[in-house]
Amino acid sequence: MGLIWWILPAIAGVVGLMLLFAGFGKLASLKPVSGGTRLLFGVGFLGLAGIVAFAGLNLQTYKRLTYERDIANIKFAAVDGVPDTYHVDLTFSDGRKLLEANGAQPVLTGDQFEIGAQIIKFQPVANMLGYDSIYRLDYLEGREARRFSSEAVTEATTNGIALAQNPGLDVHALAEKEGNRFGFDAEYGSATYQPMGDRFEYNVNLTQDALVARPTEATKSLIQRGEYPGFQATNGGTK
Rank of each mutant, 00 (worst) to 15 (best):
L174S: 11
T216Q: 06
D80A: 14
F184Q: 10
Q208H: 09
V14K: 04
Y135G: 03
R38Y: 09
F92L: 12
G110I: 03
A173P: 04
A104C: 08
G25N: 12
R96D: 13
S150H: 14
A104E: 15
D138M: 03
N73R: 12
F41D: 01
F200T: 01
F184T: 07
D80Q: 13
Q194V: 06
G197I: 00
Q105T: 14
Q60M: 15
Y62R: 14
A126N: 09
L90T: 02
G42F: 04
L129K: 10
D94Y: 07
I51E: 09
L169D: 11
Q105D: 11
A173Q: 15
I11L: 13
V33Q: 10
L17K: 00
P32F: 07
Y202I: 05
E178G: 12
Y202K: 00
E217N: 13
G179P: 02
D89H: 09
E201T: 02
Y193E: 13
R147I: 01
G189I: 07
E155I: 12
Q232Y: 10
E187I: 13
I223D: 05
E201M: 07
D185V: 06
A152V: 09
L169W: 14
R64G: 04
E155Q: 14
L137Q: 03
G183H: 09
R199Q: 10
S150L: 15
G2I: 08
